[in-house]
Design a protein around this nucleic acid. Sequence first.
DNA 1: GATTAAATTCAACGTTTGTTGAAATGTCAA
DNA 2: TTGACATTTCAACAAACGTTGAATTTAATC
Lengths: 218, 218
Amino acid sequence: MTKAPEKNRIRRKDRILNAAEALFAKHGFEGVSMRMVADSAEVDLALASYHFGSKRGLFDAVLLRRAEVLNDLRLAALEKCQAEAGGNGPSVEAIIDAFLHPLLGEGLQADEGWLHYFELIAQVNSSYEWGGQLMTKYFDPLVRKFMEALKAALPDAEPQDFYWCYHFLSGALTLTMAHTGRIDQLSDGAVKSEDMVGAYERMVPFMAAGFKKMCEKG
Amino acid sequence: MTKAPEKNRIRRKDRILNAAEALFAKHGFEGVSMRMVADSAEVDLALASYHFGSKRGLFDAVLLRRAEVLNDLRLAALEKCQAEAGGNGPSVEAIIDAFLHPLLGEGLQADEGWLHYFELIAQVNSSYEWGGQLMTKYFDPLVRKFMEALKAALPDAEPQDFYWCYHFLSGALTLTMAHTGRIDQLSDGAVKSEDMVGAYERMVPFMAAGFKKMCEKG
DNA sequence: GATTAAATTCAACGTTTGTTGAAATGTCAA
DNA sequence: TTGACATTTCAACAAACGTTGAATTTAATC
C-alpha cells in the first residue's frame, strides 16, 4: 500500500489542469500540445484525453475550474460595497474598486495558479476567436450586475457612452493581467508589470475620472 | 504573352501576405498553417516558404509590411498637433487625439487590410509570448515620442503614475482594435464593436480625464 | 481473497504539420 | 534563339499532432 493512494489519484487530474493552465496562458490554445501538457504534469500522454475527453475539453475544464470561485468573490465584493453605501448606493469609485480588487488585490495575486489563470483570461478576452463567446459564457451574469450598479451611480449616462467606458476599463484590466512585460521596457524598468497593487491603486481613480467625464452632465 | 505578367508575379507575394494577415489576425500564429495561407491566397503551398523562408518569416513580413507606413502616419499626426499648439506645447487631449486618430479615424479604418492588421496587432500586444518583444521592436521609438510629448504636457507627473496611465490607454486601445464582439453582446446590440469612430470620440476625453486626474497636482 | 470499476500505461492509428530538392515554367537581356 | 535567373509547381520527407483500443495496475466493495 502506497502512502495516501486516493489523494495521489486525484492529484493527477489537478496536476494536468495546473500544467495546462500555465501552458495555455503562455502559448494559447493552439500553441500547446497534449504532449507538452503531459510532460509538464509528469503524466502519461493518454491520461489527459481520458479525464477530459479532448484537448478542447481540457481547455474548457481549465477555464471553468476557477470561474465560479472568482465570480463568487467578485459578487461578494460588490454586495459588500453596496451594503456599506448609504441609500444613494455606492460611488463610481467604490464600484470600480469592487470590480478590480478581487483580481488585482493581494489575495489571489499571491497564488501562482491564479496568476496563470488571469493571464489566460486576458489572452482569451482579447482573442477574436474565443473572446466574444467564452467570456460571455463564463462571466456575463456577473459583469451585468456591476454594470447595473454603475448605471445607478451614473443616472444621466447615455448608453453608448456608458458601454464604451466599460469597454475601456475592461481593456485596461485585460492588458494589465496579461503581463507582457511591455510596460517594463517602455518605462526603462521604472514600472514592473507584475506590480498589480500599483496598477490597481491607479486604475481605480483613473477609470472613475473617465466614467464621470463621459457619463455625467455638465 | 499574358496580360501584365510582371504585375501578376508581384501579386502572388502580396496575395500571400494579405491572406496570412487576415488568418493570423483571426486565429493567431499557431492557429494558422501554411496550407491555410496557401489555400486562402490560391497559391501553391511551397510558394510561401520560397518567398519568406519560413512560417515565422512570413509572420514577421506581415507585421513589418505596414509598420513603417503606420509609424510615419502617426508621427505626422504628432508633429502636426505640436505645430498647431502654442509655445506651451499641445494639450493632453490633443496628444491623445494624435495618438489615436490614425488608428481609429476614418482613413485606414476604411481599408479591410488595415483592419486585419489592427486585429493582429491587438492580438500580438496582449500575448505573453510575443507582446513584449515584437511591439517593442516595431513601435517603441514612435511610442516614446508620444510619451515625451505627454510628459511635457504633464510636468508634475510621477513616473509610475505616468507609465501606468499610458498602459491603461494602450490596453483600452488594444481591446478596441481586437473586435471581439463582446461589447455588442454586453450592450445587447446598443454598441457595435466595429464603430471605431464612436470609440475614438469617447476614448480621447475619457483618457485625457484619467491622465489629468492621476498626473496633475491638486 | 475474489469481484468490479476506475485509473493508468502502452503502442499504435491516421492526419496534419513545416520544409525541401528537383523539375517545370516564366521573364528578361543579349 | 540562346542563356541566365527568378518564380512556380510537384512530390515527398520526417516529425509532431490528437485520439483510441487493449492491456495493466490500483482502489474500493463484497
